[in-house]
């Protein structure tokens, strides 16, 4: 029995790391199915590459560090980090980009900092940020979703595998033909060229919620996240804080100038805010500890995501926002130590 200092009930069922990681991976399945439906089988290939490289690196580092291999490699944390990387990268990313991200996540961000439980930075986001900075051209190529204005000459599974392995397209295709800027990207580029927001949305066929495929993917991620909340695998503080942070900044932008700042729900349902809120920022190792701390941490992430999108040079900022707030966690924890019962504030 474990006793926890809070109100009743005091007896909780201890969960193993393995069970938690497994359930979090399970929660991503609906999103993965919709992702594959709209964007092709690229995600599956990303997952294959990322998971195998992550497990190989995990094995290598455990060997080098003289740790017992079976319990740590079986805990599923490497698989979950690999899944998050696979989701963050565009489908049809060349395998060496995915492999670099997974290897950096495991070797540097996780094991050089001391392994699971000691990593300062979220490994998946550290790996993703490294390739985002290093291979900007490859990471801008998002396949056009089914039902987009331009007709994506859809690639077969075999052709997709070929693209992932070689990094170049079959002869009949060009990148311009099968890829399309994501809604966040096209709006940011349009605004930087001085276009009006309302024209942009009209030209791109965007609703105030964004584009349909991305809304569908994000709704599926949201469903998975809500399931995690229901299973009490994550606390509500972090997702709520991130969403609230994005929401208040977006509303402030709208009030300031509704022709230059995109609508609130466009921000939430385009890009990876929901993924970040429920699956990435909520990583218990790299997040703040106390409830008050979690709220501050998550609010910071939300505001930073919006700031990077609105004023930065990257279309989305979840990875950088999470990494930046990871860095502030010791400071946040220092100032949010909960008051012990009977002690003065």
């Amino acid at each position: 029995m474990k006793f926890i200092q809070s109100s009743a009930p005091h007896i909780r069922k201890p969960r193993s790391v393995r069970a938690i990681m497994f359930e979090v991976c399970l929660a991503l399945i609906p999103a993965a199915l919709i992702h594959v439906y709209f964007l092709g089988p690229g995600l599956v290939l990303n997952v294959c590459v990322a998971v195998s490289v992550a497990l190989a690196c995990e094995y290598l580092m455990l060997r080098l560090r003289g740790q017992s291999i079976a319990p740590f490699i079986g805990d599923g944390s490497a698989v979950l980090a690999a899944l998050l990387i696979a989701f963050a990268l565009p489908p049809l990313t060349p395998w060496w980009v995915t492999a670099t991200a997974a290897a950096f996540a495991m070797i540097v961000a996780k094991h050089l900092y001391g392994g699971l439980g000691f990593n300062t930075f979220n490994p998946a986001m550290a790996g993703y940020a490294v390739v985002l900075v290093s291979f900007p051209a490859e990471l801008a190529l998002w396949t056009a979703p089914v039902g987009a204005q331009i007709d994506p000459g859809s690639l077969s599974l075999l052709q997709s595998i070929q693209v992932t392995l070689t990094g170049s397209l079959p002869e009949a295709y060009t990148w311009d033909q099968i890829t399309q800027a994501t809604p966040l990207d096209s709006v940011q580029i349009g605004l930087s060229q001085g276009a009006m927001l309302s024209e942009l949305f009209y030209d791109q066929g965007l609703t105030t919620y964004g584009a349909q495929p991305w809304i569908a993917i994000n709704l599926a991620i949201l469903a998975g996240g809500v399931w995690l909340l229901g299973r009490k695998l994550i606390s509500w503080h972090i997702p709520a804080g991130v969403l609230f942070g994005v929401a208040i900044s977006a509303l402030a932008g709208r009030i300031l100038d509704s022709d230059a700042y995109s609508p609130l729900f466009f921000h939430i349902f385009s890009g990876s805010v929901i993924m970040g809120a429920f699956f990435i920022a909520s990583d218990p190792v790299s997040a703040a500890t106390s409830r008050r701390g979690k709220l501050i941490y998550a609010l910071g992430i939300g505001i930073l995501i919006y700031s990077i999108r609105a004023w930065g040079s990257y279309p989305d900022g979840v990875a950088f926002a999470v990494l930046f707030m990871n860095m502030l966690v010791p400071l946040i924890d220092h100032f949010t130590i909960p008051r012990a019962y009977g002690h003065a504030r």
């Binding site: 670099t100 540097v108 490294v130 900075v133 290093s134 291979f135 900007p136």
Partner: peptide, 14 residues
């Protein structure tokens, strides 16, 4: 074609 990170300051520390 290069792995840009290593040219940037964080790459120097790494």
């Amino acid at each position: 074609s290069g792995f840009l990170l290593l040219i940037l300051p964080p790459g120097a520390f790494l």
